[in-house]
Every structure is written in C-alpha cells, then in structure tokens.
C-alpha cells in the first residue's frame, strides 16, 4: 500500500497509479491532540481511546510500505496539522522498549517497513532545514522507515514537487 498524507488540499495526479495509493488530506479531518494517557498501550492496546478521525489514519500508516508526507514547517518541526497526527499514531507501537542500532525505541506492532519521502514546504531557513532533517532521521527509527528522503520547497511549487515524487511511483 502507498500512502500520501498531506496537511493541505492538493491536486495530485494519481490516474496512472494502481489502486493501492491512498491520499489522506488531514486538513479535512477532525483530529484531537494526543492526551498522553497511554490508553493505546495499556488499556486498549493498538487502539486510541479518542475515537475521532485519527483512528482511520494510523492503520493506513502502519500498512503502507511507501509513504509520502507533505507538511509545512514551523521552527524546524512539522507544523500543527501533521504533528498532531504523528502524535496520535502511537497506537502502532507497544509500550515495550527494544534496542534499534544500539538505541532504545518502542517495539512496533504490525507496521510495514517503509520507504518514506517527506516534502516540507514554506519559507524555511537553512537552520530549520537542518533541524527538520535531523527530526526526520530521528523519526525513521521510531516509524519503521527503511529509507527516507526530505525535499524542501516553497508553497507555490508544492504541487509540482509532490507530483514529481508521485510520478516516481509509476516507474
């Protein structure tokens, strides 16, 4: 399964791609902040106790082996919409800890290893780019990325950048 997760509506051309591509526009969904209750680890394992639109998104994240995340950047971090969803995706992990390349991380549930492409857009300074790249590198260990690439672009060039990346899935 291939997943495109975007924080804003975009005109993405997927006509010639197979039906395994799913596009989720987070800006159209109602997703509350994670409460940090650990319910998804210790009360209803694998299920978030907040039954809003996020519960339809994190299973898609888990199943996908190709993901394309599109997010604006604030202070070198994903901006609110994407960050809120990523925080709500922790039901895909267990509470338990394991070693990954010598570092402690959570055990994953049934989560496919992923090739991830992150398209970060906005007016992003060189320092923010550097920190955002480090953040994605950190994410790769906690989100089962086997490879990840980060592209920076402006808002006006966003659709073109996204469609260029999506076209690579056709090959």
């Amino acid at each position: 399964m291939k997943l495109i997760l975007t924080d804003k509506p975009l005109n993405i051309s997927t006509d010639s791609l197979d039906k395994s591509v799913k596009i989720i526009d987070l800006s159209t969904l109602k997703i509350a902040n994670c409460m940090g209750c650990y319910g998804c680890w210790t009360k209803t394992p694998g299920k978030c106790v907040i039954r809003d639109d996020a519960v339809g998104v994190y299973p898609c994240i888990a199943k996908s082996d190709e993901v394309l995340y599109i997010s604006s950047v604030k202070y070198g971090c994903y901006d609110t919409t994407m960050k809120t969803m990523l925080e709500r995706a922790i039901p895909v992990q267990q509470a338990f800890i394991r070693l990954v390349n010598g570092e402690t991380h959570h055990v994953q549930r049934d989560v496919a290893m992923k090739n991830a492409v992150i398209i970060a857009y906005g007016d992003i300074s060189a320092e923010e780019k550097e920190v955002f790249e480090k953040l994605v590198e950190r994410n790769s260990k906690n989100m089962n990325f086997k490879s990840c690439k980060v592209f920076f672009t402006t808002e006006s060039l966003l659709e073109e950048t996204v469609n260029n990346e999506v076209r690579k899935w056709k090959i």
Binding site: Y38, W41, T42, K43, P45, G46, K47, V55, Y58, P59, A62, K63, P91, V92, Q94, A95, F96, I97, R98, L99, T104, V107, R109, D110, V111
Partner: peptide, 30 residues
C-alpha cells in the same frame, strides 16, 4: 529494557490488561 518492561507490565496490570494483550500486533482490528 528489563526494568521498563516490568514497569509497563505493572502499568497494564493496574488496568486489568496482561503483558500478552499489550503485546498484540493488531492495530485497531487489523
């Protein structure tokens, strides 16, 4: 890792959830 495993097992126990249940590989119902 051993200490944190025990910490989380006890956390689950307080909610009546076993280690095996916490280790489910299922996400939602998949």
């Amino acid at each position: 890792i051993k200490a944190s495993t025990n910490y989380w097992i006890n956390y689950g126990k307080k909610n009546g959830v076993s280690k095996e249940e916490m280790q489910t590989m299922k996400i939602e119902n998949n």
